[in-house]
Design a protein around this nucleic acid. Structure first.
Lengths: 216, 216
DNA sequence: GAAGAAACTGTACGATCGTTCGCACAGTAA
DNA sequence: TTACTGTGCGAACGATCGTACAGTTTCTTC
């Protein structure tokens, strides 16, 4: 989605990109815990070999940093969840793989504060601006991807004909998010098993083959 | 839960309580949108006939204000969801009434930013301190209440024997929260119907009488 | 009455925030 | 070489935050 500067190697930009990446690696971790508004140029700079105004310059200001953090988090999410799930065949198997990878992603704390997007979605729920738009776009991409493979599963007869894929995607994301939240708020690791059981239940109720859902 | 000063009428305390209530009415609305950390003594004071340091004095500081806001939000939630649901008989009917009342509470925007507790739970997910403890306590109270009436429903034979009430409560809260989040983030009002359909489905799968769930 | 408690005001303080500006340095392009 | 661009630093800015403190007013208690 982001054009990762496929331009010829420019020593200055390379240096800048390395600095940006270092800042963003820290920023997404911070933001997953406290949110994007709580990000502070000074706090980031204090833990990096970069000046406070240096960060402001690299991203053009705080909002630029926030937007870059969202994009960086997307890349991390794709690498942790979407790409590994491509091992599984499109359709039901892929859908289930995404669910499994997502629970792992949350449980492993790829982001220190649990799912980065959960935090920032709630944070920008009721706000306007470019950051909110970016967060919404990321959310839509993810749910669209779920819906697509739910739809493929229906077409392939892996799920009952007439299955409401929007409803199914709604229920799946609800369970995943609830597991993430419960794990963070209550420190209860059992919620992941609950979420998986619920998703398995809702898939089997729509005719999914239990053997596919058992596969690790 | 809070001892609402049952002490004899003291003119000074009455005045203070009136001021506190005015501040809290505004504070919970703000916090439901931006979170408890984003609350600002100055911003509140500017919209009220109270001085900035007056607010600080009334609550003993910002943390005191945050704790009082959580308690105030609990009272509002109880009045909007828990008390109305007492019309319904304990057990399955009560459980379903709570679900209906909750979706109304979220849709009606009793709090401008959707469910107050959703916002602050995510905000204090990964923090320590008195505010987090209060948020967790409120969360436990709510889910305990759901579990209690789920258990009563099982005992009364309204739900299948052997029903895992923890699992059921997990799924119900997951759907409700997902509806709240979806409504806020995407502006899609249809998510409430989705949540109700999902809860109805999971209850009927456990043997609930559809007639009870149809009752408005 | 006097004494004291609680509700406020007004002011000031130190800290921290994001932004801006001038400047030095490194690398590219002519 | 010269001109230009991107990175990065250091200092200062105005704004805003929570808190503290002294003082005034209102009400209760003794």
């Amino acid at each position: 989605m982001t054009t990762e500067t496929p331009l010829p190697a420019d020593g200055r930009r390379l240096r800048g990109d390395r600095s940006r990446r270092a800042v963003l690696d820290l920023a997404v971790q911070d933001a997953s815990v406290r949110g994007l508004e709580a990000l502070t140029l000074g706090s980031l700079a204090a833990r990096l070999p970069v000046n406070k105004s240096g960060i402001a310059g690299l991203f053009g200001g705080k909002e630029g940093l926030q937007l870059a953090a969202v994009e960086h988090a997307r890349a991390i999410f794709v690498e942790a969840v979407v790409l590994p799930a491509r091992e599984a065949a499109p359709g039901l198997a892929r859908l289930w793989a995404l669910v499994r990878r997502w629970t792992d992603y949350s449980r492993r704390r790829v982001f220190a504060g649990g799912c980065f997007f959960r935090t920032v979605e709630v944070e920008f729920d009721t706000q306007d601006g470019a950051v909110r738009d970016a967060v919404v776009a990321a959310h839509r991409d993810w749910t669209s991807y779920l819906r697509r493979h739910a739809g493929l599963a229906v077409e392939a007869g892996e799920l009952a004909a007439g299955t409401d894929v929007d409803q199914l995607a709604f229920e799946i994301t609800a369970m995943l998010n609830a597991a993430n939240d419960g794990s963070l708020l209550l420190g209860d690791d059992g919620v992941y098993a609950r979420a998986l059981a619920a998703v398995r239940g809702t898939l089997e109720a729509r005719g999914a083959d239990p053997a596919v859902l058992a596969a690790r």
